[in-house]
Design a protein around this nucleic acid. Sequence first.
DNA 1: GGTTGTTAGTTACAAAATCAACTATTACCT
DNA 2: AGGTAATAGTTGATTTTGTAACTAACAACC
Lengths: 143, 143
Amino acid sequence: MSEKDDFDLQYFLPYMLNQAAEESSIAFQRHYKNRYGMLRTEWRVLFHLGRYGEMTAKEIGERARIHKTKVSRAVQKLADRRFLTRKKDENDRRSERLELTQAGLAAYRDLRGVAQEYDAKLVAGFDPEDVATLRRLLARLAG
Amino acid sequence: MSEKDDFDLQYFLPYMLNQAAEESSIAFQRHYKNRYGMLRTEWRVLFHLGRYGEMTAKEIGERARIHKTKVSRAVQKLADRRFLTRKKDENDRRSERLELTQAGLAAYRDLRGVAQEYDAKLVAGFDPEDVATLRRLLARLAG
DNA sequence: GGTTGTTAGTTACAAAATCAACTATTACCT
DNA sequence: AGGTAATAGTTGATTTTGTAACTAACAACC
């Protein structure tokens, strides 16, 4: 059914990005999934709290561009599993300050290390300049 | 809660890929979603059939790396909406040859055009050499 | 000070993805 | 041939996501 059209999905950027994203996520997922029973959103919330310290759900959502319902559920699960504690902000009692527990902090440090190694491994075979270009364009595409 | 750690999620490749993939998908989604009521998997199946001609669900799944249940459901919906027809392969009656209808072909041609334009627009502001590097690395990361 | 409008976060319901089990057909193997 | 395994595709149950409506707290304004 094809005529003279040379446009291929394999060169459609959104598709390529998606395939690369999925592929590169699989191996890393194992760590937060199997070892800590986390979902991706949970790992991201954990990371933000570990990396930047105590903050509110809203701030996390803005920084990581995660919808508030997803953040809400991730926070709930992390709290259930004692990875973080929540306490009402006394200045604005609608929001809560979230803070990692010792267990949460330990998980963060562990996963951060794994992520660093994993990232290095992903680009190990590439020319560093190309990798710099890659990151630069990805950052711009992410908007 | 952070100590001296300079590793940031914003530079973690799987994260960057994901953000870029999501961002770049949003605007394009509108076309197959609002105009044809399709999901991403359906658009991909449509594309494969339009681009490469008649094939089986299995072949589509392999090429596009989509799980067979997702392919199955996408094919079902495309068939319901008369975008494709299915007929049993007489050599192997477990599988079916899938083929786009005229309506499916028209949708494919339309969306292919939109995709091409969209892709061009995405990289419009970038140095062509950088874009080539980007595509090359993405292809390798996608495995 | 009460009405109206926002905002942070949660919950309920619908849509979609994932995983396992299932049917039908074909392949293999002795 | 007969039995076992493998394969294409579907279906059902569970999990996860997305959307919209909701509650509680705050802000603004007259």
